[in-house]
Design a protein around this nucleic acid. Structure first.
Lengths: 339, 339
DNA sequence: TTGTATGCGTTATCAA
DNA sequence: TTGATAACGCATACAA
C-alpha cells in the first residue's frame, strides 16, 4: 500500500548515482556537479518525490510538529486561537497537532502523553476546567520539551503564558455598567474554581469598590456548566424570588444569553430595565436580540503570540522562564447595554 | 534538549541486557524470561519510558496518524465533525492531524501535500469552496493513501464519501414553508458553483414543482461569501426594489440571520410576514430572535462514519470504491417559521 | 565531485 | 532465552 511513495533510493537507482548524491542534489549541497544536480531534480519532480518527514524527524530528532491542547474546539475563541497558531507555525515550517481535552483532566493528561510520544517539538496548552494536579506539566518539562500556556494557565508551573488581563477586562465591563447608571449589578460566574473566573470576579468587585458601591455576595452567582440553560434557570428563579438588579455582567456570552432569555420571559426589557454585558465576543453576539455587549478576547493574536513564544524557546534553547504576556481586550458595546 | 527522552537503549544499559531483549519484554514477546521481563518493565516505568512513535512509524511504514482537511475550524459544523473523527480515531489508536484550507484551493493542495509528506495513513477531506481541479486527489490515490470525503465531495474522484442528502433536506425545508402556507418562497444560496449548493437549489425547485407552484428564477439569489452582511445587503435591496415573498429558505444559517435583520429593518415581522428556515442548525439558532428553524446536519455522526470508513480502507486494504453514505438530516422547527 | 559507512529508535530475523 | 544484525529513509562525516 504505502510502497508507492518515492524514496531517495528510487531516484538514485533510476539515475545511476548513490543515494547520498541524490540527497545532496535535493538539498542544494555546495559540493555537487550542477549537471547531475539538474538531472536529479528533474527526476525527483518526475517521480513526484517528497521527502519522508518521518525519516527526517528520526534523523534530526525534531518532528517540526507542535502539539496543541485546547478544552473544546467548538468554542469560537479556541478555534480563533488555533488559526493564529497555525498561521505562525506554517510560516516557520511547523505543522500542528490538535487535541481537545473536553475539559477533562484525564483526557488532558492522555493528550499530553500522546503528543509527547509523537515527539512534538513543543507544546501549547490551555488548561481544562477539571484540575487535579500539575504532574503532566512537570513531565513535559522533565523531558526538556518547550511548553507555553495560553488563556488558561495553571499556578505553580514555571512556563511562559499568553493571557488576557481577566481582572481588568471584567472591571472595565462592570465599570461600563456603572457608568451607564446601573445601581445594582449581578455577576454570573462560570465555574468559580477556575483562576480566570476568579480573576473576573475580582475585577467585578474592584469596579464596585472603586465606585463606592455596595458589594452583595448574593449577587455573585456561579453557573458551573457554562451552558445558557444553566444561567436561564438560575436567573429566572432569582427573579421569581424577588431579586432586583438593573445590570448584569456574565463571565461568558452563553451565560449572558441564557440570562437575557430569563429576563425577557420575566417581562423585563433590555437594556432599559437591565443592561447586560457578556465575555468573549462570540461570533453570535451581534446576531442575538438585542445584540450583546461583550469583552472581545483577541483569540487569533493570542495564538500567534503563543506560537511565537514557543518558537523562541525551541530555537533559542533557552532556560525555562515564566514570563506572562497580557493581551489587550476591548469592550464591544452593543444594544444590550446602551440605548 | 531532546536528549532527556528515555530510549530502549537506556533501559538496556541500566539493566545490562541487549536492546532487543528490552524490546521483547516491553512488547510481551513470548520468548522471554519472565523474571527479566519484570525487571525491565519496572525500570521502564522508573525511567518513564515511552516508545518513540517516530521510530516506530519509520519501521512500520505506518504513522497511525490520519490527516483531516476542513474548510474552516470555526464553523460549528466542522468542529462537530472533527469531534466525531477524533472519537473513533482515538478508540482505534490513531491520532489526527487537522488542517484548514480556509476555502482556498491552493491552501488545500498545500495541506494535502504536507499531510502526505507526514506519511499519514489516510486522509479525510471536505473540499474548499474554491475548486480548480482534482490533481491533488489523484496524487493521493496514486500513492496508495486511503481517502474519504465528507460533506463536500468533488465530482469525478473515485473515493467513498459520507454526506447528507442536500437535495432532500432542502426539499423538506421548502416543503415545510409551503405547508405553512407560504405562496412565494425565496432561496438564498451560498456559492451556487458548489455541488452541495446546487443540490440544495434542486431540492428547493423540486418542492415547488411538486406543489405545482410557480418557479421564478429571480427568487434564487446567490450570496457567495456566506457572511450575514452579504444576505443582509442583498435582501434589503430586493425589498427596497419591491420584491414580495412570504417565505425564505437560506442554504446556511448565517445567510438566514442576515436576511432576518434586513426583513426586520424593513418593518416585516417573522414569521407572520415572512417565514424563515436556515441550514446547518448552528449552535446559535436558538439564541437569535426569533429562534431560527434550521436543517440539522449530524456533524459528529458524519465524523464518526467517515473515520470508520477510512479505517476499513486502511485495515482491509481494499480497492478504491466510491460508495456514498447519506446521513439523515432533521428539520428543526423553531419560531422563525411557526407561530 | 562522488560513494561508503554510520546512526537516529525500534523490531524482525537469525544465530548462539 | 538472549544477543547481534539489518532495515525503515535520510543526511552527513569521512574516504576516495
Amino acid at each position: 500500500m504505502k510502497s508507492k511513495q518515492t524514496t531517495i533510493k528510487d531516484i538514485a537507482r533510476e539515475i545511476g548515482v548513490s543515494p547520498s548524491t541524490v540527497s545532496r542534489a535535493l538539498n542544494d549541497h555546495p559540493a555537487i556537479n550542477s549537471a547531475t544536480k539538474v538531472r536529479i531534480k528533474a527526476k525527483a519532480k518526475e517521480l513526484k518525490y517528497e521527502p519522508n518527514i518521518v525519516a527526517l524527524s528520526l534523523k534530526n530528532r525534531s518532528t517540526k510538529t507542535i502539539g496543541v491542547v485546547v478544552p473544546e474546539l467548538i468554542h469560537f475563541f479556541f478555534s480563533s486561537v488555533i488559526s493564529g497558531i497555525e498561521e505562525v507555525a506554517y510560516d516557520n515550517g511547523y505543522t500542528v497537532m490538535i487535541c481537545q481535552s473536553k475539559e477533562s483532566y484525564d483526557k488532558e493528561v492522555k493528550d499530553v502523553m500522546a503528543l509527547l510520544a509523537h515527539r512534538v517539538d513543543g507544546l501549547l496548552i490551555s488548561q481544562a476546567k477539571e484540575i487535579l494536579n500539575n504532574e503532566h506539566y512537570d513531565e513535559i518539562q522533565r523531558r526538556g520539551v518547550p511548553l507555553v500556556f495560553f488563556d488558561r494557565m495553571p499556578s505553580g508551573v514555571k512556563a511562559p503564558s499568553i493571557i488576557i488581563d481577566d481582572a481588568s477586562a471584567a472591571k472595565e465591563a462592570t465599570q461600563h455598567l456603572i457608568d451607564r447608571g446601573c445601581q445594582s449589578i449581578m455577576h454570573l460566574g462560570n465555574n468559580l474554581e477556575m483562576p480566570i473566573s476568579k480573576a473576573r470576579v475580582d475585577g467585578y468587585r474592584q469596579a464596585l469598590l472603586d465606585s463606592g458601591m455596595q458589594l452583595d455576595e448574593d449577587m455573585i452567582v456561579d453557573c458551573p456548566t457554562s451552558i445558557q440553560n444553566d444561567s436561564y434557570a438560575k436567573v429566572l428563579s432569582l427573579l421569581e424570588g424577588g431579586a432586583k438588579f438593573d445590570g448584569l455582567f456574565a463571565s461568558n456570552d452563553l451565560l449572558a444569553i441564557g440570562a437575557i432569555k430569563a429576563l425577557k420571559q420575566f417581562g423585563l426589557s433590555i437594556p432599559q430595565d437591565v443592561a447586560v454585558v457578556g465575555f468573549s465576543n462570540w461570533n453570535f453576539c451581534d446576531m442575538v436580540d438585542p445584540p450583546l455587549s461583550s469583552v472581545n478576547q483577541p483569540g487569533t493574536e493570542m495564538g500567534r503570540q503563543a506560537m511565537k513564544r514557543l518558537l523562541r524557546m525551541i530555537t533559542e534553547d533557552e532556560e525555562n522562564a515564566n514570563d506572562v504576556m497580557m493581551l489587550d481586550t476591548a469592550l464591544i458595546v452593543r444594544k444590550s447595554s446602551s440605548l
